[in-house]
């Protein structure tokens, strides 16, 4: 097994992708709306397709804008349908994101079917193809274009969460208190939704709209098994995300060699790794299944 520059580029994009997703994912998890990540990652498709049809280019600010609009619309529609249609939130989310996703697929098949935005890639991404699209930075250093896109998204997410850390925390923990203190939890909600939408679009090319859900949710969920301190939770999510991506690509390379199997996909392996790490932590971690048997959690003392 040899480690080439191509492998380095694929892993870099994977790591940046997973880390960018873990940040908004942490707050989705804390707000108990993890499935909103699922909904938005699918629902951004019509936004992307329309932006693509208007601008004609596959990567542009239009696509981010279209995705952000579609993401916020998903959150809005979900709320309206559950409120006025009197169906529960889960059902209303199911109605909204499947419809939007279907519209997006039709738009792509009809309007952009002959260009390099195809439906299969939408679902699974094409991490292996990332090194084919290189750009030169710092005069002579070549980097995958995707690394720049997703890297900037990671920085953007870091900046937003760093900037609004206290506001996100209070709005997620106690929206009533946030509202009475004038911190507009609904605004914070839509900022988070925008962040999720922008991140899923940036991650789209590399990992597609399904694998991205694993990257949004599983690393934070794993970190949540290990700590009850928010800053550490965020840090651990980032580390677990990066670790899964690296291990994912390593196993993608190793498995065919060891077992004599055909090539597998890196993004798929990265998502699988997040799942395996979760399982291991769940079994072996401090709150894990194995340690919990035997020593019961101590009861909080009364005063």
């Amino acid at each position: 097994m040899t480690w080439t520059t191509t492998d380095f580029h694929i892993t870099t994009v994977g790591v940046l992708c997973a880390m960018a997703c873990a940040l908004p994912g942490t707050f989705l998890l804390l707000r108990r709306m993890s499935m909103m990540g699922d909904a938005i990652s699918h629902a951004v498709l019509p936004g992307l397709a329309v932006a693509f049809l208007i601008s004609g280019a596959r990567t542009s600010w239009w696509m981010f804008f279209g995705a952000a609009v579609a993401g916020v619309m998903t959150a809005l529609f979900t709320q309206w349908i559950s409120k006025f249609g009197k169906v529960d939130r889960g059902a209303s989310m199911g109605i909204v994101f499947t419809t939007l996703f279907a519209v997006g697929l039709i738009l792509i098949e009809q309007g952009a079917g002959n260009v390099d935005l195809d439906a299969r890639c939408v679902l699974y991404g094409a991490l292996e193809l990332v090194p084919l699209n290189m750009v030169t930075v710092f005069e002579n250093y070549e980097m995958p274009r995707a690394a720049i896109v997703i890297g900037s998204t990671l920085l953007f997410n870091l900046a937003v969460i760093g900037f609004f850390y206290k506001e996100f925390t209070i709005a997620s923990f106690d929206s009533g208190l946030a509202e009475t203190q004038g911190f507009h939890p609904r605004l914070m909600h839509y900022i988070l939704m925008t962040m999720v939408a922008v991140t899923t679009v940036a991650a789209f090319e590399a990992v597609g709209s399904i694998i991205v859900i694993a990257m949004l949710i599983v690393p934070p969920a794993t970190a949540f098994l290990l700590t009850r301190r928010l800053p550490i939770l965020i840090l651990l999510s980032l580390i677990i995300a990066a670790g899964s991506a690296i291990l994912g690509h390593l196993t993608t390379k190793a498995i065919p060699v060891i077992f004599g199997l055909p090539e597998t996909t890196s993004s798929g392996m990265m998502a699988t790794m997040t799942g395996i790490i979760f399982l291991l932590v769940w079994l072996l971690g401090p709150q894990g299944l194995i340690r919990r048997n035997g020593t019961e959690l101590e009861e909080p003392e009364e005063i």
Partner: peptide, 18 residues
């Protein structure tokens, strides 16, 4: 509120100063 939220007693009280 969700008492599983990853904050300490001090963090919650500090929210009153926001």
């Amino acid at each position: 509120v969700d008492w599983d939220f990853p904050v300490s007693a001090l963090d919650v009280v500090t929210m009153g100063t926001y």
